[in-house]
C-alpha cells in the first residue's frame, strides 16, 4: 500500500512538471509569435547584423528614407511621418506628416515629438541620426538609398518588411508585379540580345552608373552590358572620357538628378555634345542617335515606384508588353 501511495505522488509530480513545462513552452511560443523580427538582407548583415528583434510589433512608425514608404503605404502600415524628398512624390491619401527627413536636414525634434517606437533610416543616416535615436531606446532599421540601390535591393527590402509585419498576401501581390516586370525584361533581353551601354548620370562627362545602380540594374536585366562594370559590377563612377571613347557603347542612357524630365536632360546633354563634337561625335550611340534621355526619377531609387518606372522604360525601349 505504501508503495502504491508513493507511486501516486510520483505520478502527480510528473504530471505537475509536465504541465509546468508545457505551460512554459506555450507561453514561450506565444511570446515568440508576438515578437517582431525584421531581417537584414545579406548585403547589409556584415554592417548591421542579422536583423532586428523586438518584443512586439511596432505601432508608431517613422520612415526617414524614401525607399520603403510606398510599399509600406500599400501594405496598410500606418506611418507617423515620411520624408520630404525632391525625387519622390507621395500620394495625397498617405496620412503621414511630411518632415524634412533627408540626409542633411533631419528634423530630430519633429521625430522625437511624434514618439515613434520604430524608425527606418537610410544606411548613411546611422552615425548622424540613428545612433542618437537608438540611445533613446528607439529601435532603428536601416535600408539602402540613393542611386546605388538596385531593383533587386528594393524587391528584397519590400519582401523583408512585408514578412516582418505579417503582410503576407499584399507582399505576395507586390512580388507578383515584380515577377511580371522581370519577365518582361527577360523577354526584351531574349529579343534584343546583348548590347553595350553607358549610363550617364548628372552633368555630361561627370559620372557613369554601373549595373549595381538603380537605372543600371534595370538595364542589366534587359541585357545591356554596362561599360562601367570593369572587374566587378559598379555603382557610380567618375569615369574617363578616354574609356568611354574606347568602349564606344552601342547605346547611351542619360539620367540627370536636377531635371524633372528626359527632355530637360536632352537640352543639357545635346548642348554638351555640340560643344565638344570632336569627342562626343566619336561615340556611335551619339552619332547614330541612340541616346535615351530619362527624368530624375531614374537617378535615385524611390521604392515601389521601381515597378512602374521599369515598365515605362520597357515601353520606351519598345519591349513593354507585360503578362
Amino acid at each position: 500500500m505504501k508503495t502504491r501511495g508513493s507511486n501516486h505522488w510520483v505520478i502527480a509530480l510528473v504530471c505537475a512538471l509536465s504541465l509546468l513545462i508545457s505551460g512554459y513552452a506555450f507561453a514561450e511560443s506565444q511570446s515568440q509569435s508576438e515578437m517582431f523580427s525584421l531581417a537584414y538582407p545579406p548585403s547589409l548583415q556584415e554592417q548591421f547584423g542579422e536583423g532586428l528583434l523586438l518584443d512586439a510589433t511596432p505601432q508608431r512608425l517613422i520612415v526617414m528614407t524614401p525607399n520603403p514608404v510606398l510599399a509600406m503605404y500599400e501594405m496598410g502600415l500606418e506611418m507617423l511621418a515620411v520624408p520630404i524628398s525632391q525625387l519622390s512624390v507621395w500620394p495625397d491619401e498617405l496620412k503621414a506628416e511630411r518632415l524634412p527627413l533627408d540626409r542633411n536636414t533631419v528634423d530630430m525634434e519633429g521625430i522625437l515629438l511624434l514618439q515613434p517606437d520604430f524608425v527606418i533610416l537610410s544606411t548613411g543616416q546611422r552615425d548622424a541620426y540613428g545612433k542618437t535615436l537608438e540611445e533613446r531606446g528607439i529601435p532603428c532599421y536601416y535600408v539602402k538609398s540613393g542611386p546605388a540601390v538596385t531593383f533587386q535591393d528594393i524587391r528584397e527590402m519590400i519582401q523583408l518588411i512585408g514578412a516582418a509585419f505579417g503582410k503576407t498576401e499584399i507582399t505576395q501581390n507586390i512580388m507578383g508585379r515584380f515577377d511580371a516586370v522581370e519577365a518582361a525584361a527577360a523577354r526584351y533581353k531574349a529579343e534584343h540580345g546583348a548590347q553595350t551601354a553607358a549610363v550617364m548620370f548628372s552633368e555630361p562627362g561627370a559620372y557613369l552608373l554601373g549595373s549595381k545602380s538603380y537605372l543600371g540594374s534595370m538595364l542589366d536585366m534587359m541585357g545591356y552590358l554596362n561599360i562601367a562594370d570593369q572587374d566587378k559590377p559598379a555603382s557610380l563612377l567618375p569615369i574617363s572620357m578616354e574609356e568611354l571613347i574606347l568602349q564606344n557603347p552601342q547605346a547611351i542612357f542619360v539620367t540627370h538628378t536636377s531635371t524633372a524630365t528626359g527632355e530637360e536632360a536632352r537640352v543639357i546633354y545635346e548642348a554638351a555634345f555640340e560643344e565638344n563634337a570632336a569627342v562626343w561625335g566619336k561615340l556611335d550611340a551619339i552619332s547614330g542617335n541612340n541616346v535615351v534621355y530619362l527624368g530624375a526619377s531614374y537617378s535615385h531609387a524611390s521604392g515601389l515606384n521601381v515597378i512602374s518606372e521599369f515598365e515605362t522604360l520597357l515601353a520606351i525601349m519598345g519591349g513593354g508588353a507585360l503578362d
Partner: peptide, 10 residues
C-alpha cells in the same frame, strides 16, 4: 538640394 549634388560636387 541634398539629393542632386553630384553635378555641383563634380
Amino acid at each position: 538640394n541634398s539629393e542632386n549634388l553630384q553635378g555641383v560636387l563634380a
